[in-house]
Design a protein around this nucleic acid. Structure first.
Length: 963
RNA sequence: GCCGAAGUGGUGAAAUUGGUAUACACGAAGGACUUAAAAUCCUUUGGAGUUAAUCCUCCGUGCGGGUUCGAGUCCCGCCUUCGGCACCA
């Protein structure tokens, strides 16, 4: 018996494929085009990661299937070759990043080829190749030309020891990861790209693409569009400025309706107002101290909702609330970020939790201006349930002629919700009208106004001894077993516990935890006339707000904006969470930014004919003392003539971030060797958009957004034919180590693809990675799991080598199963449900093994298996006597007539529990089937002579008898 | 903290999207083959109870509630884990 020698087979076919044109994409072919793409790898020194293979294998399967289905497939590969690790390695060892990168690419290429991926290697690209980054630089110049690239001061993490800007990732506990030096925030001139100019289109065009819903959600959350208003507050200082020099502090707010509740202002510590009024601020030194402290905090620390807020009042400065004309204090506090909105906020502590926390701490006025509507809590189905419970109790005690009183503010609110608004127009007449049955009146406990009104209107009918009082939704647990003091009379509280248990409102423990309970509690606080111990951020009716009183939030917002616009004190606007893209790096290993800085002409673009600006060779990779990129030290490179005036000028020494090259690489694949344009328009028109793009979930915000931005920009220039780069985007889950943790060298749980390929072969490795779990979920590696797949491969090998045509003929069940399997695999490759595809094929192979299998059937099976296990497929195909590659075969069709089983077994449930099973055929009517179910022996047993109340039949699935 | 996703046997997981929970695979136990081992093949394998029985009963998809004839799937609340958070890629 011939052994399955994976090594021999795999090397053999890899050589054949390498020499063939099997996987070459053909420009302008008449076949339908299909462009599928994986995220090109960063060629790190660690070599290929098993996680890369998850994505590559899945799309390789797709690409192979699409080819067999008659498509002209483009499945390209390239290298995202610029990056920090290569540079850090160079700093450590002196090895040029170019050298290490080349070495790494060689390793990656060998590894990828050893896995049998059907990439079109003739289109290989490399972002660090001058012929490639020439076009990255060209795109930057176009952005500059269209005023979408600008230089400005930006806050960065600064390592005091290496004199270098750091990524957040490189900062560990405020220390530099590399040298342990102290890190603080400092400002530096940086090139920026105005991605915010495209925010709306990036958001709206999500409707045009087929991304996973969660990916769309992440994109739109990241863009974070909000609607609100900009409002200006006049700053008042001790020595008032001359009238025409008044300083107005603009704020952005999503809640202009709450302006009457604004009792102070907060500016970010970085805000210009502090410098501007330095001599007017009495405690300026303390303020400076505070600013120093914030420089050590990360943004996440600053905005953490759970942490105590810090801040400092700017003594000597006040602001004027534009509607109340009150003078309110101004604070500097780090929970306000300079980068969001205008870097200053109007604080409304009653209706914003952060403002509320801050106001509590600094003892500032909390002025409620919104009275919560019951609307915000009425949506809850629990309330309806409560109504019916109230009815139930009423009925129960009515029979016993006991009076029952429902009390509690929540009871009132729940009943009142559809009747009238609170608090101005409580009208117990309405109550009486709606509930003529006086013993069912709900009484608000703890709210004086209600108590008084009740006393007045119902004094003829207060509680008497023996009445039952049900406390509905109390938030005071203690009431449960105490006497109730109501209107000066003490009453026993009974039978409250079980209802209260379901509907009690507990005092909020923490904000955001148990939102519904919290909303009720706040609501109750407010109607109880107390200042709530939380901010109310929901809807409601305006109070304490002059001309807005009585309006709802939306009406008040509109009216306030009109009011502000009339007086030129503000205007309606939108704001984005998205910020402009910091595009500068003071590093060596990146694309030089093609700008010349001329003392006369300013920033002058390098003329297009001089592109690319080639990254010069250097020996020292460290930044300069003042933090410039090491390029600044190459004098004969830096010093140039100004292209505009011919005078002495210097090159920009900043380089581009790694994101630059990866923002447009999919375009270059269509025309990788073009020297005239980044890609020929006709080729782009033929190939783009990318039909299917798969990559890691970790790239679904930044990389995806950046490349969509560049693509839209290029579309506006007329360089690309489509507004969106990727028609479809999916993401794969992380492969974790065998211990369930993320793979890392330090944990020692890294699995090297080379080892696996050596031991069990590329085909087993590929199939295992697809079999291990759902494609989009993280899954731990399992060496034992690999064994099972290897056994499957060997089974296929044995069957393929021992086909006996005479042994079996026309087994209908097996033919049906084969057809079913073909259908499932055909459909599920398209949805990347590859784990279940494989299990379906395993079931088929198990049947083949048990019942034998003829050549025709096996060949069909081999065709659907071969995208998963290409080497094995090709080898067995050849052994069956075929001369041409299996990948030139047509994808097998399935016969839909052969999918359906002749007799179906369906379960019979009684009250939702499976009690019997009956066989039905497709042409039986519902009546016949029901009859069949009712006459089943087991069913009869359960019916016990009784009648079925209801019979539910779901066609071809289940029958449920209710008795 | 904010945004996103997930939680099912001893393990990786499946469940036609509201219709037989645990397919497929691993592991484990027992058996066959073998001088023996490996490999391979066969049987059993969620838990508890019960039985002459492989009959039968109950429980069971992170936790607590709800909707429904019927919930792993839908709704409300909670807990835990993972991904992203702008200079890692």
């Amino acid at each position: 018996m011939e052994q399955y020698n994976h090594q021999e087979i795999e090397v053999k076919w890899q050589k054949v494929w390498d020499k063939s044109d099997l996987y070459k994409a053909e420009d302008f072919s008449k076949k339908p085009k299909y462009y599928c793409m994986i995220e090109f790898p960063y060629p790190s020194g660690d070599g290929l990661h098993v996680g890369h293979c998850r994505s590559y294998t899945a799309l390789d399967i797709l690409a192979r299937k699409k080819r067999m289905e008659g498509n002209n497939v483009l499945f390209p590969i390239g290298w995202d070759a610029f990056g920090l690790p290569a540079e850090n390695y160079a700093i450590k060892t002196g090895q040029h990043p170019k050298v290490t990168t080349e070495k790494n690419i060689a390793t990656f290429s060998r590894q990828l080829k050893s896995l049998g991926y059907s990439f079109d290697w003739s289109r290989e690209i490399n972002t660090s190749d001058p012929n490639y980054y020439k076009w990255t630089q060209w795109i930057f110049l176009k952005l500059f030309e269209k005023n979408l690239a600008y230089k400005t001061k930006m806050d960065i993490n600064w390592c005091t020891k290496c004199n270098v800007g750091l990524a957040n990732e490189e900062v560990v506990n405020n220390l530099c990861e590399r040298c342990g030096g102290e890190v603080y925030h400092r400002e530096r001139e940086q090139w920026m790209l105005k991605i915010t100019a495209y925010a709306d289109r990036l958001l709206e065009d999500l409707d045009k693409v087929n991304y996973l819903e969660k990916i769309k959600k992440q994109q739109s959350d990241w863009i974070g569009k909000s609607y609100g208003a900009q409002v200006v507050f006049k700053v008042i200082s001790k020595s008032s400025l001359p009238k025409d020099k008044d300083y107005f502090l603009p704020v952005y707010t999503t809640r202009p309706d709450t302006l009457f509740g604004c009792t102070y202002m907060v500016v970010a510590p970085e805000h210009e107002v502090i410098q501007k009024f330095a001599d007017q601020i009495d405690n300026y030194d303390e303020v400076l101290d505070y600013i120093e402290q914030t420089k050590k905090k990360t943004e996440m620390e600053r905005t953490n909702l759970e942490k105590t807020k810090t801040g400092i009042e700017l003594h000597g400065l006040k602001a004027s609330n534009p509607v109340t004309k009150e003078e309110i204090p101004i604070f500097a506090a780090d929970y306000v970020l300079a980068t969001y909105g205008t870097g200053a906020i109007m604080a409304v502590p009653a209706h914003d939790q952060r403002d509320y926390d801050f106001a509590k701490k600094y003892n500032l006025e909390i002025r409620p201006v919104i009275s919560p509507d019951l609307g915000s809590i009425d949506a809850d189905s629990k309330i309806n349930k409560m109504f019916s419970l109230v009815d139930e109790i009423t009925d129960k005690f009515k029979k016993e002629k006991i009076k029952i009183w429902f009390i509690g503010t929540f009871a009132v609110s729940a009943y009142r919700q559809k009747m009238f608004a609170y608090p101005a127009d409580i009208d117990f007449g309405v109550l009486e009208k709606h509930f003529p049955d006086a013993n069912k009146i709900l009484v608000g406990l703890g709210y004086k106004l209600i108590e008084e009104k009740v006393n007045e209107k119902f004094k003829h009918n207060v509680y008497k001894k023996g009445d039952v009082i049900v406390q509905v939704g109390t938030f005071d647990k203690d009431l449960g077993d105490k006497e109730l003091n109501f209107c000066g009379v003490k009453y026993p509280v009974s039978d409250a516990s079980w209802l209260a248990e379901c509907y009690k409102i507990t005092a909020p423990k923490e904000r955001r935890k148990g939102k519904n309970d919290l909303e009720r509690a706040i609501f109750l606080d407010i109607i109880a006339g107390k200042i709530p111990n939380q901010a109310w951020e929901g809807d409601g009716t305006l109070i304490n707000s002059d001309f807005l009183n009585g309006l709802n939030v939306q009406q008040a917002t509109d009216k306030m904006i009109d009011w502000l616009e009339e007086r030129e004190l503000g205007f309606e606007t939108t704001n984005y969470h998205l910020r402009d893209w910091v595009f500068s790096r003071q590093r060596y290993w990146g694309e030089p930014i093609p700008i010349i800085i001329c003392p006369e002409c300013g920033y002058v673009p390098v003329p297009e004919k001089d592109l690319p600006v080639v990254l010069p060779e250097i020996k020292n990779y460290l930044t300069t003392e003042n933090g410039d990129s090491p390029l600044a030290l190459i004098e004969d490179w830096v010093n140039v003539e100004c292209p505009k005036c011919g005078g002495d000028a210097k090159r920009e020494t900043d380089t581009m971030p790694n994101w630059a090259g990866s923002s447009w690489y999919f375009l270059r694949y269509t025309d990788p060797r073009n020297n005239k344009v980044l890609a020929d328009f006709k080729k782009l028109k033929y190939w783009t958009p990318v039909d299917w793009y798969n990559g890691g979930m970790e790239h679904t915000t930044l990389h995806l957004l950046y490349s969509r931005f560049w693509h839209k920009f290029l579309f506006d220039l007329g360089v690309v034919p489509t507004p969106e780069p990727y028609a479809k985007r999916t993401s794969h889950g992380l492969i974790l180590g065998e211990d369930g943790e993320k793979m890392s060298k330090s944990r020692g749980n890294v699995v090297n693809p080379d080892d696996v390929v050596g031991q069990v072969g590329a085909d087993t490795f590929r199939v295992y990675e697809m079999f291990m779990g759902p494609f989009d979920q993280p899954t731990p590696w399992s060496t034992q799991g690999v064994t099972g797949v290897r056994r499957f491969m060997e089974k296929v090998w044995q069957i393929g080598n021992n086909l006996d045509d005479k042994k079996r003929t026309g087994n209908d069940d097996l033919v049906r199963l084969l057809n079913k399997t073909i259908k499932q695999v055909t459909e599920q490759i398209e949805t990347l449900d590859l784990n279940t595809c494989i299990s379906a094929m395993m079931i088929l192979v198990n049947k083949f093994q048990a019942e034998g299998c003829d050549k025709k059937m096996f060949e069909d099976f081999l065709k659907i298996l071969s995208p998963f296990a290409p080497h094995l497929g090709e080898e067995l195909w050849q052994k069956l006597g075929h001369k041409k590659s299996i990948f030139l075969e047509k994808w097998p069709a399935f016969d839909s007539k052969l999918i359906k089983d002749e007799a179906i077994e369906i379960p019979v449930q009684i009250n939702g529990k499976v009690r019997a099973k009956i066989f039905i055929t497709a042409d039986e009517s519902e009546g016949e089937i029901k009859k069949k179910a009712l006459t089943d022996e087991n069913v009869k047993k359960y019916l016990n002579g009784g009648e079925a109340k209801k019979i539910i039949y779901v066609k071809g699935k289940i029958i449920n008898i209710v008795i």
